[in-house]
Amino acid sequence: MAKHVCLQSVLSVRSVRLWNALSGFQSRSDRLQFQLLQRRQISRQAQLFTGSQNDSSLNTKILVHFINQDGVKNSVTVSEGETLLDVVINKNLDISGFGACEGTLACSTCHLVFEENIYNRLDPVVDEEVDMLDLAYGVSNTSRLGCQVTVESWMDGMTVCVPQEVKDQRELSKRTK
């Protein structure tokens, strides 16, 4: 299982945006390169899991844990000033359909659930954001849109969750009707 977890974190560098723009993997040398890359990625991820605070090269970076809709955890180091939507895109986190409107407050697909102590310290929410959250499913008392939350140093170590998938479509269409 441990191996799977590592591979899953490698997955985090695959791009939701890039996956479809890339061409085929065919040659043997490509495969070799892949194995190398895989090892490098795994060690990078391993570094991450052992805690970034002690690593001087990551001092200006902030650690954020994402739990996606399948319950899979991805941990990434992030620069201050990026929105959480930027992070998901830039780090190629595997969250299907995240940020459909590209951060223009026209959908609720970048909905994230925060830990209460973090949520309480976030910048106040504007009406337009709540308008969109009102349409999201799985909304909780600590929900925000990822495109509206900018990463700051005090958030280091926080965990944000993508709401678990709603299995019942009738529930869904009722809510968004």
């Binding site: 799977h4 591979l7 899953q8 490698v10 997955l11 560098v13 695959r14 791009s15 890039l18 996956w19 890339l22 061409s23 085929g24 993997f25 065919q26 490509d30 495969r31 390169q33 892949f34 890359l37 895989q38 899979v72 595997d94």
Partner: peptide, 17 residues
């Protein structure tokens, strides 16, 4: 990073997932 490698990596990992 080589694009083809990126993609193949993706698919392998995806099938594991």
């Amino acid at each position: 990073m080589n694009r083809t490698v990126q993609k193949s990596l993706f698919f392998i990992v995806k099938s594991v997932r």
